[in-house]
Simulated scan of single mutants.
Amino acid sequence: MAATSHTPATAPGAQPQPPLGLRERKKLRTRVAIRKATYRLIAEQGYDATTIEQIAEAAEVSPSTVFRYFATKEDIVLTDEYDPVMEASLRSRPADEPPLLSVRVMMIESLSSFIDMESEELRQRTRLMVEVPAIRARMTETMSDTAKLLSKVLADRSGRSADDLQIRVFIAAVLGALREVTLYWGEQGQTGDLVAMINEAMDTLEGGLLL
């Protein structure tokens, strides 16, 4: 998912998110300013040449503020504001709906919103995922936070523990599929319909690999 310059949009069918307080809005604006400055600098001079000091100057904050919001430069590229949107979308699905269908709808809604509002950021992020090994490695690490969030949603509606092995494996498989589709799309020059590719990946998870 990706960052936005405003409160994240609510995915279709999801429960509206409560408005952010003044402090939260200021934090969000700072995060977005840092991220946009980072993408602009990377586009101009490349990933390796872009430093935290340059990012701070471009975003009009101190380097310590950058590190307060993002632990690493990779996190600036990868972190977004869409986890709450994904959570709300998944929680809005019928409790008796098959989990894979619920997750598929959530992913398609969230990705479509992402593409509509931040298409260029998605493309730049994907290019960096393909080109920069450190970003690919960090992406795998940061996905664990999203996995925990989504696992808890499925656990809540099923009455199981969020640490239930089946739930963890299920969510890991879904997010792994999302990661591989995104990388594949990037490796192919970002050609083709990304949403259709996600749907195809979900079909594979549902029906198994047919050789």
Results as ranks from 00 to 15, higher is better:
37 A>P: 09
112 S>D: 13
184 Y>Q: 10
196 A>E: 08
193 D>G: 11
73 K>D: 07
116 D>I: 07
58 A>Q: 11
133 P>G: 04
125 R>P: 13
171 I>L: 11
177 A>W: 01
201 A>P: 11
112 S>N: 15
136 R>I: 05
124 Q>Y: 05
42 I>D: 01
86 M>R: 06
150 L>K: 01
132 V>Y: 09
107 M>N: 12
45 Q>Y: 03
167 I>F: 13
69 Y>M: 09
53 E>A: 07
65 T>H: 06
111 L>G: 10
205 L>W: 02
187 E>N: 09
100 L>W: 01
97 E>P: 11
142 T>Q: 11
3 A>I: 13
89 S>L: 08
94 P>G: 08
104 R>M: 13
189 G>L: 13
89 S>Y: 05
11 A>I: 05
19 P>A: 05
207 G>I: 06
63 P>D: 02
49 A>G: 15
184 Y>T: 14
106 M>W: 02
125 R>A: 10
107 M>L: 15
93 R>H: 03
46 G>E: 07
97 E>M: 11
156 D>V: 00
141 E>R: 06
119 S>T: 04
23 R>W: 10
74 E>Y: 04
197 M>S: 11
159 G>K: 00
178 L>G: 05
162 A>F: 03
207 G>T: 02
150 L>M: 13
12 P>S: 02
84 P>H: 00
138 R>F: 09
211 L>C: 14
5 S>E: 11
93 R>S: 08
113 S>Q: 07
110 S>A: 14
146 T>K: 07
182 T>P: 14
105 V>P: 12
7 T>P: 12
210 L>N: 06
134 A>N: 04
94 P>N: 15
180 E>I: 00
97 E>C: 12
173 A>P: 12
47 Y>K: 01
118 E>H: 15
158 S>A: 15
158 S>R: 01
162 A>I: 01
206 E>S: 14
153 V>N: 00
76 I>K: 03
192 G>I: 05
98 P>G: 03
42 I>Y: 03
99 P>V: 03
141 E>L: 15
163 D>K: 00
167 I>R: 00
